[in-house]
Amino acid sequence: MGTAISLDLADDLPAVELAELAEGVFAWLREVDARFSTYRADSEVCRVDRGELSPAAAGADLRAVLARCADLWGATDGFFDAYATGRLDPSGYVKGWAVQVASDRLLAAGAANHCLNAGGDVRVRGHASSGGPWRIGVRHPWDAMATCLVLAGTDLAVATSGVYERGHHVLDPRRGAPARGLRSVTVVGPDLGLADAYATAAVAMGPAGIGWLDRLPDHQHAVVTDDARLLHSAALPLAG
């Protein structure tokens, strides 16, 4: 998936069972990478983009993702756009969605206490091995070795979209140019796919994204602007 992925299973289960659960997670994420990658020529996404495979003939997961991306385009007034670059790229939703699916599967399998982190998109459930809530550091957008915030909770989906690693790569689809104004956007909510897409959309909006996030129901956020201001919603679950 083009990023480092870590899994922490905190349930007191036999080692063999934990290993099987972990392998299931990573097998699923490898499958998602093979089917949704924009870099692998044989992926379903690339084949649809080239017109070799019609969306109707694609797998059920890709059809569902494309339908959700269409819904998100409407919900974000066009700022979440899987075709913003001129080609099909649903990555702004897929990574969060894939991690959410993996977490849901772990919960269904009896692993109620876990943390799955895919490059800063994090899904936590239950408690950490210490017995306390999970603590999630939000990377400082100018210092890779520091955090700007630490969140805590037992059932959180946390997605961060920023320009600190790849530069201003998120496009404003209305202008067809890189969006500017927001250095980092973190969205916290109940579903990681939605949080991932909302964070991407807010970056694409630029400074107007702050007001949009303020009006977003059932989600909290933290924003670091290009001029180094840190703004966050009052209900953000900050660690004590």
Results as ranks from 00 to 15, higher is better:
Ala4Ser: 13
Ser6Asn: 11
Leu7Glu: 08
Asp8Lys: 14
Leu13Asn: 02
Ala15Ser: 14
Leu18Lys: 15
Ala22Ser: 15
Ala22Phe: 05
Val25Trp: 03
Leu29Ser: 08
Val32Pro: 06
Asp33Lys: 06
Ser37Lys: 04
Thr38Gln: 05
Ala41Gln: 09
Glu44Ser: 05
Val45Thr: 15
Asp49Ile: 03
Arg50Leu: 12
Arg50Ala: 15
Glu52Phe: 02
Ala58Trp: 02
Leu62Phe: 12
Leu66Phe: 14
Ala67Leu: 10
Leu72Ser: 07
Trp73Pro: 00
Trp73Lys: 13
Thr76Val: 12
Asp81Ser: 11
Leu88Met: 10
Asp89Phe: 06
Asp89Tyr: 08
Gly92Met: 03
Gly96Ser: 07
Asp104Ile: 02
Gly110Ser: 10
Ala112Asn: 01
Ala118Asp: 00
Gly132Asp: 11
Trp134Leu: 00
Arg135Gly: 00
Ile136Met: 02
Val138His: 03
Ala144Trp: 03
Met145Ala: 15
Val150Leu: 08
Val150Ala: 08
Val158Ile: 15
His168Ile: 06
Val170His: 12
Asp172Ile: 03
Ala177Cys: 12
Ala177Met: 15
Ala177Arg: 15
Pro178Gly: 10
Ala179Trp: 07
Gly181Leu: 11
Arg183His: 13
Val188Pro: 04
Gly189Leu: 09
Pro190Trp: 04
Leu192Trp: 03
Asp196Gly: 08
Ala204Val: 09
Asp214Gly: 09
Pro217Leu: 10
His221Tyr: 15
Leu230Glu: 00
His232Phe: 13
Leu238Trp: 03
